[in-house]
């Protein structure tokens, strides 16, 4: 699915056919939880790729695989063409080029250490000369006062803590920052502040983001390209502009329809054709297309044959036998 633009240089991040299975030990025979099952995508330098999907789709596992917090069952993660699990210094060096921001800022910071120490952590030297200046510079970069460095994490508000978490991710000047639901637990007004901050930082520093979220609106506000995941697989990927205009996979369309708009004119006259049922268990995913059990357009073919992720238009990839059969606007038919 890597967009093949001929002369394009090696992408910053290449994820190739990534698979992560977790053995589930329960009573009865051992089973495999197929959290991530053959995921591929790329992130170019300075670009934001949004990964969207519901709980259990494997997006958080992808985040952990990308930054090297966990090893894949198979497949590879390449940074500037080199495997992050290469032996010795090389692999470690590549993993260090990436940082991560988590959903819960409180949980990701040591409550007994100052914010300054937490922010300086990725530099791996705490007391070296110049560190303090660097920490203060980074704090002001994310809109915090330099003197916040001496505070303890619990003395900050949620929004401030998340800014500090971003400062920590940015201080070592990484090539890629992975955001795993980093704005999910923030209030609307703070969420907007953080999203804007991320766009600002990217414009100034050229950092690439892998922005993982369940919130399609937040993903679209920040991403250049969007990847949609369902039950451990990529079902669609497109530029954000293209995706906003024409989502092609029935699941993407369903996500779009389910996302409520802050507009009572549209919402109150909505003709509801939402998805029914729950996401199947990743222990025992459906045959063929994994979405078929909830898809209103599913046919026999969908059960028999797994649809490949194939190009539909330039830079727009979709894994559906009937791509384009559902359209986002049908959700709003009846509205105006």
């Amino acid at each position: 699915m890597t967009p093949d633009r001929g002369a394009t240089p090696t992408p910053l991040l290449q994820v190739n056919d990534l698979v992560k299975h977790f053995p589930v030990r329960g009573r009865g025979p051992a089973q495999m939880l197929r959290a991530v099952d053959g995921v591929s995508f790329t992130v170019n330098a300075g670009e934001t790729v949004g990964v969207v999907g519901e709980s259990g789709c494997g997006k958080s596992t992808v985040a952990r695989l990308v930054v090297g917090l966990t090893k894949p069952t198979s497949g590879s993660v390449l940074v500037e063409g080199g495997d992050i699990w290469a032996r010795g210094k090389e692999g470690a060096e590549r993993r260090r080029r990436m940082q991560m921001v988590f959903q819960n800022p409180t949980g990701s910071m040591n409550p007994r250490r100052t914010v300054g120490d937490a922010v300086a952590e990725p530099l791996q030297v705490l007391r070296a000369p110049g560190i303090r200046a660097k920490v203060e510079e980074t704090l002001s970069l994310v809109g915090l006062k330099p003197e916040m460095a001496d505070r303890m994490p619990h003395e900050m508000s949620g929004g401030q803590q998340q800014r500090a978490a971003i400062a920590r991710a940015m201080i070592s000047n990484p090539a890629l920052v992975v955001h795993d639901e980093s704005v999910a637990s923030l209030d609307i007004s703070l969420q907007a502040q953080i999203l804007n901050l991320l766009v600002d930082l990217q414009d100034r520093l050229g950092t690439a983001y892998l922005f993982i979220s369940h919130d399609l609106a937040a993903v679209q506000a920040i991403s250049h390209r969007v990847v949609v995941m369902y039950l451990g697989e990529v079902v669609e990927s497109a530029t954000a502009v293209e995706f906003a205009a024409r989502p092609l996979h029935p699941y993407s369309v369903a996500l779009r329809r389910a996302a409520l708009l802050p507009d009572p004119e549209i919402e109150q006259s909505r003709v509801e054709v939402g998805l029914t049922g729950d996401v199947p268990s990743p222990l025992n995913p459906p045959s063929g297309c994994r979405f078929r059990t909830r898809c209103p357009y599913a046919e026999q073919k969908c059960a028999d044959e797994k649809p490949a992720l194939r190009p539909a238009q330039d830079g727009h990839y979709v894994a559906c036998h009937f791509a384009g059969i559902a359209t986002a606007t049908t959700a709003l038919e009846g509205a105006s």
């Binding site: 609106a217 679209q220 502009v241």
Partner: peptide, 8 residues
């Protein structure tokens, strides 16, 4: 509020 029908 970011909107799902808006782009970047």
């Amino acid at each position: 509020i970011p909107r799902a029908d808006h782009g970047r």
